[in-house]
């Protein structure tokens, strides 16, 4: 059964794959007084082998948090530990990053893209070929190995992009709204694929989304965030074994969880809209 736990609950740190400790992120504004507090004192532990979601309204800093975990942004304060080691810059041995849009380089074929990524992350050359072929076979894209990305549809490209992220063989995968550019049906199919692929591997996944259905369908645990400043609001656990079948979406439990998340976010979103309305009215006066 699902249960709500208070924010910031500490999972035993032995089992934590990622431990985020008192992370604060401040962006300098145009004037020193207008500095933006993107993240306000976030602490959370992500257990090994779990699929977790960061969910929240725009501006809650969920992407910023993901970038901090990936070592692409240095936090203003606090630290992130991965397997007990403090993150200081990208660590391609442990963490793979999958971005919003396909980051397949358009000037290389799919095969060359895999190889360049392996080269970047210093994987032994002898493994390149087999890893590429296995990963593409796993997502059913083997026959496109010598195509250029622009010869594939957006959905196919993102499918290859997922395969590439997994082929890097890291224990942790971070995904920044990987399905944002896709249509609803393609998202669902890719979501099912992902659930199936990852059930086998036991990887730790952190997934940023603003889709309620996606959050419920994919995650073991949803971290609900609030905006202005970005902070952790609650954690919702979703107790359903992987791989999940599309039938899960038809259950009343799915609907209840989805509504519960909507209830948590609705006020946040309303507040955000009002703030925007006020500030645009103010801008109109000047």
């Amino acid at each position: 059964m699902n249960k709500m736990t208070p924010a910031g609950q500490i999972v035993s740190s032995q089992t934590a794959a990622i431990s985020i400790q008192n992370v604060r992120q401040q962006y300098p504004g145009r004037h020193s007084s207008a500095a933006v507090l993107a993240l306000d004192d976030i602490s959370l532990d992500i257990p090994r082998g779990e699929f977790v979601c960061l969910l929240g309204p725009s501006g809650c800093g969920k992407s910023t948090l993901l970038n901090i975990v990936g070592g692409l942004i240095k936090p203003t304060a606090g630290k992130v530990q991965v397997s007990g080691r403090t993150i200081d810059g990208p660590s391609p041995r442990d963490i793979a990053f999958i971005f919003q849009e396909s980051t397949l380089l358009p000037w290389y074929t799919i095969r060359e893209n895999f190889h360049v990524s392996f080269k970047f992350s210093r994987i032994a050359r002898s493994e390149w070929q087999s890893r590429t072929e296995e990963a593409l076979a796993a997502v059913g894209m083997s026959r496109f190995i010598d195509h250029y990305p622009e010869q594939l549809s957006v959905g196919m490209r993102q499918r290859v992009n997922l395969a590439r992220g997994i082929a890097l063989g890291t224990d942790i995968i971070l995904m920044d709204e990987p399905f944002a550019a896709l249509d609803e049906q393609t998202r669902m199919v890719l979501g099912e694929d992902l659930s199936e692929l990852l059930a086998k591997t036991g990887k730790t996944i952190v997934f940023v989304t603003h889709s309620l259905a996606e959050a419920v369908f994919l995650s073991d645990r949803v971290y609900v965030m609030a905006a202005r400043p970005g902070r952790l609001k609650t954690i919702v656990e979703i107790d359903e074994p992987h791989p999940r079948s599309p039938d899960f979406m038809l259950t009343t439990r799915f609907g209840d969880l989805r509504n519960q998340l909507y209830g948590l976010l609705r006020d946040e979103v309303r507040e955000g809209l009002q703030i925007e309305r006020k500030s645009s009215a103010a801008a109109g006066r000047t």
Binding site: P90, P92, Q100, L105, K119, F120, S121, L168
Partner: peptide
């Protein structure tokens, strides 16, 4: 910018980024 961020996240060196991302991008 995503190509660069992706390269950094994979641990690419500055030379790698110049050779495999900037150069082909400039080529067109």
């Amino acid at each position: 910018i995503l190509y660069l961020r992706s390269g950094h996240s994979l641990g690419a060196s500055s030379f790698d980024i110049a050779r495999y991302i900037y150069l082909p991008n400039m080529l067109q």
